[in-house]
């Protein structure tokens, strides 16, 4: 039953062809003054065209670092990738030269960031910043690039795009700014879009609109979408599958409906139980006890064991591998059966 992480992942993706993007046993570490921080410890996931993968985890779980490694925007040093591969349509990005990666960045793999106000350049107009994609990557003239920028702003439904193309980021609301980020990222029809907590800085109604927009754009262009978030509520409607990360590893892989119904890892279960529910109104809110692991001093064995209600002696000593539950699911818990059975359907 024991399998390595890569074996477990389903080779889905349309007609059974290669996945669009696959991360294989990726390790990322940072050299800091305090010591070596192992931020990502053997993460693997795949993404097919038209698919949405939600990567779920709390701060420090390694979800953003993994994404930045895919983009190739980690500062190296201090970051280092001692092991692993990131295959994009079969090519290992980590083996490419910096120039070759610059060709892929922005054009074929694009990314949007959490806080659009700080992620947009304050001294250039939004039209300039969107148009830059066309001017630099396609050698388009200023005038044509601006026309394209207006089209894109229309496409992400920014009202009065024609007038607002000359405005600066600070003149837009949070939701509109995120739309500009999105417009910029989809400018060159990338095959993969990575959204790193795209809605965290927004209020709830705007969050829903942005998620809807992303889902719609994805349907239109059939791009693969990696949605990084710490918010289970955000992903439920749009994701196809979920990878839950903890302490720099994937602890559970599952199709989205399975994970909500029957989590197979104690951490996922804890996350689901800590969502406030109307039918349990008045009762104490569940919280996972303890603190997230210190990346400088990771617990031995399973990183979650100090906080785990299912802990046994071997959890402290042996790192659980990803166990296959069914062809689409896996869990990195020695006691996944107990966790699965302990959840009422």
């Amino acid at each position: 039953m024991k399998k390595t992480a890569t074996d477990v992942l389903p080779a889905e993706g349309g007609l059974g062809n290669d996945p669009l993007l696959s991360v294989e046993d990726l390790h990322v570490e940072f050299a800091t003054r305090a010591g070596l921080v192992k931020a990502v410890n053997g993460v693997s996931y795949t993404l097919s065209a038209g698919e949405t993968l939600a990567v779920l985890g709390e701060s420090g779980s390694g979800k953003s670092v993994t994404a930045q490694a895919i983009m190739g925007i980690l500062d190296m040093p201090p970051a280092r990738i001692p092991k692993g591969a990131i295959r994009f349509q079969g090519t290992d990005l980590l083996k490419l030269s910096e120039e070759a990666r610059t060709q892929i960045r922005g054009r074929r793999i694009a990314m949007i960031f959490q806080d659009a106000l700080s992620a947009l350049n304050p001294v250039f107009t939004v039209g300039w910043q969107i148009g830059e994609m066309f001017r630099v990557h396609q050698g388009m003239s200023k005038r044509d690039a601006e026309k394209k920028a207006v089209e894109l702003m229309d496409r992400v439904r920014i009202p009065a795009a024609k007038q607002r193309v000359h405005d600066f980021p600070h003149q837009f609301s949070g939701g509109m700014r995120q739309r500009i980020m999105i417009a910029m990222s989809i400018a060159l029809d990338p095959e993969v879009l990575i959204a790193d907590e795209p809605t965290t800085a927004l209020d709830v109604t705007v969050q829903a609109q942005i998620m809807e927009l992303l889902a719609e754009l994805q349907r239109e262009s059939n791009m693969g979408l990696i949605l990084i978030t710490h918010d289970l509520g955000v992903v439920a409607d749009v994701a196809d599958k979920i990878a839950v990360m903890y302490g720099g590893r994937i602890v559970e892989n599952a199709p989205v409906h399975d994970i909500y119904r029957r989590p197979a890892h104690p951490y996922t279960k804890g996350l689901l139980e800590s969502i406030p529910r109307v039918d349990l109104k008045g009762q104490d809110l569940y919280a996972i006890k303890g603190l997230p692991p210190n990346l400088l001093d990771m617990p031995t064995g399973c990183a979650f064991h100090p906080r785990c209600p299912y802990r046994q002696d071997n959890c402290v000593t042996s790192v659980p591998e990803l166990y296959e539950i069914d062809p689409n699911r896996s869990s990195a818990c020695h006691y996944w059966r107990e966790v699965l059975d302990g959840t009422d359907e």
């Binding site: 925007i73 610059t102 960045r105 922005g106 054009r107 960031f113 806080d115 700080s118």
Partner: peptide, 17 residues
């Protein structure tokens, strides 16, 4: 170190730019 510099890198801009 600013976020918008990271964005520019993610947009595939050359280091020079």
């Amino acid at each position: 170190r600013a976020d918008f510099v990271r964005t520019a890198v993610a947009k595939g801009m050359s280091r020079r730019r």
